[in-house]
Each structure stands twice: as C-alpha cells, then as structure tokens.
Design a protein around this nucleic acid. Structure first.
Lengths: 260, 260
DNA sequence: AAAGAAATGAGTGAATATGACGGACTTTGC
DNA sequence: GCAAAGTCCGTCATATTCACTCATTTCTTT
C-alpha cells in the first residue's frame, strides 16, 4: 500500500458513505465496480460500505450493487453485469487514443459519458459541458476537471449558451471527443438540436484533434443542423457494422476511421 | 495573560475550537491531520478539541476527523425533524429578500447551499460556481440555472480560476449572496483560502446588491485573505446574538444589518 | 515569586480501515 | 441443465487512527 498518502487528504469514510447515498439518489442505482471507480477505492471497501449503509437503512443492497431506498423497483439488470453494449465498445476504443497527461474535451451526450467512465484513475485533464460527466468524475482525485460555464439544459444534462462558447475561447485541448445525432451519407456531421451547434463549433475550434464517436446506428443518420464538414474531423471511432458507403466517404475526406 | 498572544503566534483554545467549527462549516468535513496542519497544533490537540466540540453538539465526530453538524446526508429521521439551526434561519431570511423573476448569484460554501434549498419552486435565475447548489437545483424545472466555468475544486465542491472570473465578467445579476469565513471586528470580510478571493471579488463586481450571509459564529471571525471592505456590502444577514461591536461597525459603513 | 491548574505534545498498545486473495455463491448465456 | 463469468464473503497483512498515559510547557492564583 504505497499510495496511502491519499488517505489523510482524501475523504473520510463517513463522508464517502454519504457520497454513495448521494450517487444512488442521483442515478437510482449503482454497481459495486462503478462506485469503486467513481470514489477511487477498492471494491472490497465499497462492499463494506454498502453493507453498513444497508444496515442503517440508507440504501437497499442487491446483488451487484445497491438501490436508492425510495428509488422504486426498477430492474437491476442495467447496472449489473458487464453489458458490453455498442456505445461501451466505442468508448473503450476511444479511451485507448488518450495518452496520460493529455487534455481532452468531452461533448454532451451519453457517448461521451461512456468515455468518461473509462477514464477513472487516468492522469488526464478533462474539459466538459456535460453534467453527467461532472457527476461521474467529480470524486476522482486523479483527474483534473474543468467545467465550461453556461445555462443548464436539464433535458440534456448539459451547459449551453454564449457563456459556454466564451469559456471555450479561453481554452485549448489536445483532443475533442464529439458526439452526434447522425452522420449523413456525404459525411457531414449533424445534430438534432440547433442550440448545441454553436457550442460544438466552438469545441472544434478549441482542439488540436477532433474525434467523432458514433456507434453503428448513427451511420447514416440525420439531424436538422449541420455541425461540421467531414474534413474538420481528425478521426472517427465507430463499429464494424457501420454503413460502409458513409465510412468510405469519410475516409475520402481524409478522416481516419477506427473500428471498435 | 500576555496581550501579545492575541496577535497571531498563539491562539486561545476556545478560539481554535471556533475556527475548527468554522472550517467544517466551510468544507462540510475535515480530517484530523488536515486540521492539525491548518491550525498549527498537534493531532492530539485536535482530537481533544473534536471530542469536546462533539459533546457540545457543534460537530459530529467520525473516524478520521469530523463532519459539520448539518453536513452531508444524515439519517432520514433527523432530516424530517424540526430544524431551526442557525444557517437555516439566516438562509430563510435571505430567501425573503429575493423577488420572483430576479437573478441571483450564489457563492460557494454551505451557507449558500442552505439558501439554494429555500429556492425550490421559485421563479428565479440562479448563477453559481457552487457544485452543491448545482446538485440541489439541477432537477428544479422552475429555476433558471447558470453555472460559471472553472477548475473543479473537489474539497470545496466549487469552481475556481480564471475561467470562473472570465465567466463572471460576461454576466450581471441583481443580487449576490456572499459567504465568508469570518467578519473582522473592523467589518472587513475575510476568507480562509486565497484562491477563492479573486472569484469573490469578481462576483462583487457582477452584482447590483451584495448581501453577506453570516451566522453568529462568524462575528467576529478571522481569515487569511481580505475579500472586501464593509463599504462594498449592501446588506448583511446574521443572527441577533452576533457580536454587537462588529455589527455596529458594519452599520457605520452604511451596511444594512438584517437579523434572522 | 512559587505553587497549582490547565493545555499541549509525544509515545504506546488497541481499534479501525483498507486492499488483496481464495473459495463459495449467484447470475447469465447457451 | 450446465458451464462460464461475475459477485460475494471470509481471512489476512498492512496502514492509519484512536484512547490513554506521562512529561513538559503555559497560564492562573496565591
């Protein structure tokens, strides 16, 4: 146990247990593995915490994790087990592209959140307007976290507006990981909401590399607003069963297409 | 008693214990090691202080340190009970100062969080760098919520840095509700950490009215860094048993002193 | 000035917290 | 059903914190 200098500086046991209860209230449920990563302790410690909290009646212990006490009876299948679903594979592949010490910018949406979950314990600087990412990485001491300002958009758990754009003009990062509602057959990246587009454009301006994260369902896809031309992308991470014609179109525009 | 003991080198036990309580209210929790370093005494002394304060009910002793009495998530039984604790009274009084439709800026710290809890269902615009406030108001559809950008400061659950200051320059609000580590006898507002001071100053610049929230334990109080002169405040909300001399000093500087 | 009281810091064995490991158990996919 | 994967629950070694004692310093009282 070499890294125990953390102990004194880090959270107190009781404090961490409060954080567990808070996290469960936010999400409704939490897996042992996820909580361990989020709070930066071992799974054994999380199990002990969950047992203690269960005895106190502050949560309900279930196989694989715990549920919030008042959080209803939703199936636990979703938080439990491995669930190697598409977005997860893409996110894992994307995480491999990041070197320790780098700074990255995470777009809004669940794809970027999946990527954030892969970053626990890594020494990286994360910049984001994604409130779900904030919650996920809030307690990870290893990660330098920077939040862009902006108006809270509850339905998307994101920050938008001129404040967000202005914040982006003050920063520069190595890599942007961009989400999308769909990539059109001609390779143009689209989004479903107009309001996010200026923010995404500002993000592109603030990064050296632009990596688009898009599972197969986004190829080809639609959207009301154009975010950028394919030429502005450095790389696209997607899946083997993504539409080939669109992939070829992207490759032609000089974009490196990586399959997860 | 030697008069010079007051001037910095040595601190009276009672004074130090007040500082501990204040430090906990600011952070929510504190480790024995951290408190010992911060106050310049041995861990043994801190433990004795914590035990004494715990018996007085001024904090909750936990393994490794202590928690603020109202900090974190306590058992539900206590939450539902009648709570007329100091910060709550101050927060309620402060909430009465806000008109529907106004925009307000909330400082970091638990005092501002208490105020945020009073705002549920109100039609107000809330601007903040306080991550605890974000969590509290995140799901309240009625409230327009704006987050300032910045570096995440985990121990204080706040955002700091030039991004935060820059964000503040883009905004203007009706009222700022400011927290503090203590108000000196001459009325100057102090803070315990240097790094927050530029942000607090920028907040003052961004508001028409500046309201200081300070329970009785902050009167008089100390801090390493000066945030502002009393003349920069519009109003102070505190309690009837706050030090009268300090209150008089504030009134003389043209500050309206409101008792909760 | 001297004696007494209170506070402090250091040291020690006991108690608590943590992480790793292995065998028993549960869930999942076939 | 069965096998595989994942999860749990003991146990142990180690690091940290605690309660206690005692000597020293500091403050108060006589």
């Amino acid at each position: 146990m070499t890294d125990f200098a953390w102990y004194g500086l880090s959270v107190l046991p009781k404090q961490r247990q409060d954080q567990i209860v808070r996290a469960l209230r936010a999400d409704g449920a939490g897996g042992v593995k996820a909580l361990a990563a989020q709070l930066g302790v071992s799974e054994a410690t999380i199990r002990r915490d969950l047992e203690s909290l269960h005895e106190q009646g502050r949560l309900t212990r279930v196989y694989g994790g715990a549920l919030a006490v008042d959080g209803g009876d939703e199936p636990f299948a979703e938080v439990s087990a491995v669930r190697t679903d598409e977005k997860d594979r893409v996110a894992r592949k994307a995480a491999e592209l990041i070197e320790d010490g780098e700074s990255i910018l995470l777009d809004i949406g669940t794809t970027a959140l999946q990527l954030a979950k892969q970053l626990h314990g890594r020494s990286v600087t994360v910049v984001t307007s994604n409130l779900a990412v904030l919650e996920e990485l809030q307690n990870d001491e290893q990660i330098e976290l920077i939040i862009l300002g902006g108006f809270v958009r509850r339905s998307y758990r994101s920050l938008v507006g001129y404040l967000t754009e202005e914040s982006l003009r003050q920063l520069h990062v190595n890599t942007l990981f961009l989400g999308t509602s769909g990539v059109r057959p001609d390779g143009r990246v689209m989004d479903s909401t107009m309001i996010e587009v200026p923010v995404k454009r500002a993000m592109i301006q603030a990064a050296d590399r632009v990596v688009l994260l898009a599972d197969a369902s986004k190829f080809p896809g639609h959207g009301v607003a154009k975010v950028c031309e394919p030429g502005e992308l450095t790389m696209v991470v997607t899946e083997p069963d993504a539409d080939e014609a669109t992939r070829a179109q992207l490759a032609e525009a000089g974009v490196q297409v990586v399959l997860a």
